[in-house]
């Protein structure tokens, strides 16, 4: 699958999906004008990539500064997808990176982290 690299804007996050290395990341702010238009293509590419995987290693970095409630649905979808992938036998690691003094992102990370059992979840405070 062709890698996906989207630069950040002031209201959409940088997306870096490297399918060859199974390394994925989403960084920045997210309150897109139209959530399905922005997230639809990368999300469905990731879904079809992970669907058949039964072994190997996948790492996903979240490094969000802010996301609105509509984008939160996308984050939840990604967590569900990653947990499902781990359930298929893939070693999945999810890193939640947040600024050390950002209580909001820390709390959200802890909450979303509760969705993961089969996948490994790391909270990473950034100085």
């Amino acid at each position: 699958m062709e890698n996906i690299k989207i630069d950040a804007t002031e209201r959409t996050p940088a997306i870096d999906f490297n399918f060859a290395d199974n390394r994925f990341s989403m960084r920045g702010e997210s309150y897109p004008e139209d959530v399905p238009t922005f997230f639809g293509p990368p999300l469905s590419a990731l879904e079809s990539h992970l669907r058949g995987m039964q072994a190997g290693y996948v790492e996903f970095d979240f490094e969000m500064i802010y996301f609105n409630s509509t984008s939160a649905k996308v984050v939840m979808k990604l967590f569900d997808l990653l947990e499902k992938t781990a359930g298929q036998g893939v070693a999945v690691t999810v890193n939640w990176r947040f600024a050390e003094d950002d209580d909001n992102m820390q709390e959200l990370g802890e909450e979303f982290g509760e969705e993961l059992q089969a996948a490994t979840f790391n909270m990473c405070a950034l100085r």
């Binding site: 309150y31 802010y66 609105n68 409630s69 950002d102 909001n104």
Partner: peptide, 15 residues
Amino acid sequence: GTVQNVFSILVEQIQ
């Protein structure tokens, strides 16, 4: 955190 919460609420209200 306060700045971020004011901003977030503003975004949800306007949307």
